[in-house]
Amino acid sequence: MKTLTLFAAWAVAASAYAGNPIITDVFTADPAAMVHGDTVYLYTGHDEALPDKPGYVMDDWLCFSSTDMVNWKPEGSILSLEDFPWAKANAWAAHTIERDGRFFWYVSVWRGEGLGFAVGVATADSPTGPFSDPLGGPLVSSDMTPDPINPEGRRVTWDDIDPAAFIDEDGQAYLFWGNTNLYWAKLKDDMIELDGEIHQIELPHFTEAPWVHKKGDLYYLTYAWGFPERTAYATSKSVTGPWEYRGVIKGLAGNCNTNHQSIIEFKGRDYFIYHNGGLLTGGSFRRSVCIDELRYNEDGSLQRIVSTLEGVPSADEPRAK
């Protein structure tokens, strides 16, 4: 009886934490979380590569929702490559944001040989859709940006990926994106057109996965650093820079070459959402989303991210003093 009582107590305690990875029945990658009211909506990529077949197999995006950061409700595959007839393959990293009651889902897709990757956008009146493509073509395409040159001296067309939107306190919206090159541009009020020129940001060892958020008086730009990827960050007093590099805050993802982060504040707690290859048959092409706490020092710097197996406690639980 004592053993059963102890087990029951352990089970209750364990259930109060999310556990990492947070989704175990499907492979999820490139998390982008959005707080809307009392709910967090988590948008992810969907890895479907077979265990013995290296390479990304990604045809749609998934959505999950939670009111406590522990229990996640699957909202299903609510956006796919089929919703972008001009896209040929690779439903890569994406980001959803709300403005004036409308939702904008920025995605990375492959347009085809010679055209490269592009950023598209889908819109909806609900965080779970239905979403549709208002442009019928890319928002950002490779003919708008200078494609990088690989070590063999060949032009590559993969720098227009990993979009991340941000709306500043004055209402101005921005889009950040890139691989090898880091770009940003203003968005018009309709959120589906660029407003003005495309700018570049130079940061040490920038690879991909930019994410911008603000805490207090500081803007934070986190990104994937090097390859295999770590996570680094820079800070600024303005969303348009200049950006001061502050260092690496997260090491290599377990059993996975890539790092891709999302940062939110929810119910007074700060969260760092990322992926790894932590499931039994996981890996670089079969990734899984995890969540751990994000902590700030008094000077605004970020503490190093500690990856855990237990994950985060319920957002509804009182914070430990």
Rank of each mutant, 00 (worst) to 15 (best):
M1I: 11
F7M: 09
A9S: 06
A13Q: 06
Y17P: 00
P21I: 12
I23A: 13
T24F: 05
V26G: 00
T28K: 07
T28D: 12
A29Y: 11
A29T: 15
D30F: 08
V35Y: 01
T39D: 02
T39C: 05
Y43C: 00
D52A: 13
Y56T: 04
V57M: 05
W61R: 00
C63P: 00
C63F: 00
C63D: 04
F64M: 08
S77D: 05
K88V: 11
A89Y: 09
A91R: 03
A91Q: 05
A93Q: 13
A93G: 01
A94N: 03
R99N: 11
R111C: 15
G112Y: 02
E113R: 05
F117E: 13
V119S: 07
A122N: 01
P127K: 03
T128H: 04
S132C: 06
G137T: 06
S142V: 13
M144D: 09
T145G: 02
P146T: 13
N150R: 05
R154S: 12
V156D: 09
I161C: 10
I161A: 11
I161S: 08
P163M: 09
A165M: 05
F166R: 01
I167M: 02
A173C: 03
L175K: 01
F176I: 02
W177N: 03
N181Y: 14
L182C: 13
K188S: 13
D189S: 15
E193F: 02
I198W: 11
H199F: 10
H199W: 04
I201W: 06
F206I: 04
F206V: 04
E208C: 07
K214S: 01
L218A: 05
Y220W: 08
W225H: 15
G226L: 07
Y233W: 07
S236P: 03
K237E: 15
K237H: 10
E244Q: 10
R246A: 01
V248H: 06
V248E: 13
I249W: 01
G254L: 12
C256Y: 06
H260Y: 12
S262W: 04
I263K: 04
I264F: 13
Y274G: 09
Y274H: 14
L279Q: 11
S284M: 07
F285S: 07
V289I: 15
I291F: 14
Y296I: 07
L302P: 01
I305V: 15
D316Y: 03
E317V: 03
P318A: 12
R319Y: 05
